[in-house]
Amino acid sequence: MPNEFSAREVAELANVPVRAVDKAIEEKVLAGIRAAAPGRRRMLPLHAVPYAAIVARLPVTLSLETKRDLARALGKRSTARMTAEPLEIAPAVTVDVSALVGSDLAERAERYGKAREDFVHVDPDIMGGTPVLRGTRMTVYSVLGRIDGGDSVDDVLEDNPHLTREAVETAVFYARTHPIIGRPGGRPWAKAA
């Protein structure tokens, strides 16, 4: 779903450590949306992105109940209002959310969610279920590998004129927030020596 995000996606979009998002989940401040199928991870709602950004940037420490109230208040707002308007987090304490995290944070997260749905495709019959750019057999990890290897988005687009800049940028973001799980390839101990 476009408005559901993994903990890593929330952390990257909010520009906070993943541990901060994990802590909010553990404290039951952010509740995951039930997984659509068994074995799939729970996803977080859109309001988790501005929540994580606000809590990380506030110059005060909030109580657990205040954090829950903040998450509930953000969850009740529309996307356009989520970060555009001030938010009362306690009696006589109002946070200017747009000054703290930017007025378009929720909209950027929503745009990424839609782009992810439009451009990233996971099908067990295509590349063994590895996420690919829709309509191709190009994995998101191969696109990330090119970018990390020194190529620019323009280089990738030059080699693949059928792709859009948004598709390539979405693939890179998706690959960074959904790392391949398993044993690392090659000889990582050789780099350490």
Rank of each mutant, 00 (worst) to 15 (best):
T94G: 00
L74Y: 01
V122M: 13
F173N: 07
V156L: 04
I147A: 08
V60D: 10
F5N: 03
P2T: 09
H162C: 04
I126P: 00
L87T: 00
D22H: 14
P50N: 10
T164D: 08
A11Y: 05
V101K: 02
R42H: 15
E107T: 15
D159P: 00
A80S: 11
L64M: 07
A80M: 06
S98D: 12
A37E: 14
P86G: 07
P91W: 09
G182K: 09
V16Y: 08
A31K: 14
E4M: 10
T136C: 07
P50D: 08
R42Q: 15
P86L: 08
R111A: 13
Y51E: 09
R41G: 14
K191Q: 13
P131F: 02
V18Q: 09
A175Y: 00
P179T: 09
E12H: 11
P131V: 02
H178L: 10
P59D: 14
P59Y: 05
R137I: 08
M82R: 10
P124N: 12
M1R: 11
P17N: 13
I126S: 00
R116V: 03
S152R: 09
L44R: 00
S142K: 12
D155L: 00
M1A: 14
T94H: 00
L105V: 06
A192K: 12
K23W: 07
A52L: 03
I180R: 15
Y51N: 04
S78Q: 13
F5Q: 03
L105K: 02
H178W: 10
Y141M: 05
E88F: 06
G32F: 04
V101W: 01
I147P: 00
G128H: 06
V93F: 13
V55Q: 09
V95Y: 04
A90F: 05
V60G: 02
R165T: 04
R165H: 05
M1W: 07
L46F: 10
V172E: 02
A36S: 15
R57G: 07
L74D: 01
T177W: 01
H162I: 11
Y174F: 15
G32H: 03
P86C: 05
T170K: 02
M138E: 09
A73D: 14
R81K: 14
A53Q: 05
P124E: 13
I147T: 01
H178D: 12
T177A: 08
T130F: 07
K114D: 11
V97D: 03
E12M: 12
M138N: 01
T83S: 13
G129S: 13
D123I: 11
V60S: 10
A53G: 06
A14E: 09
G75F: 01
T94W: 04
P59E: 12
M138Q: 09
P50Q: 06
L100C: 08
A99W: 08
Y141I: 04
M127E: 15
V97Q: 01
P50K: 07
K67W: 03
E85G: 00
A36D: 15
L44Y: 00
V122N: 08
A48W: 01
R187Y: 12
D22R: 15
A92W: 11
S78K: 13
G135L: 11
A84G: 11
A11T: 07
D148A: 14
M138A: 06
H162D: 14
S63C: 02
I33Q: 01
M43N: 03
P161Y: 05
S142C: 00
A167N: 01
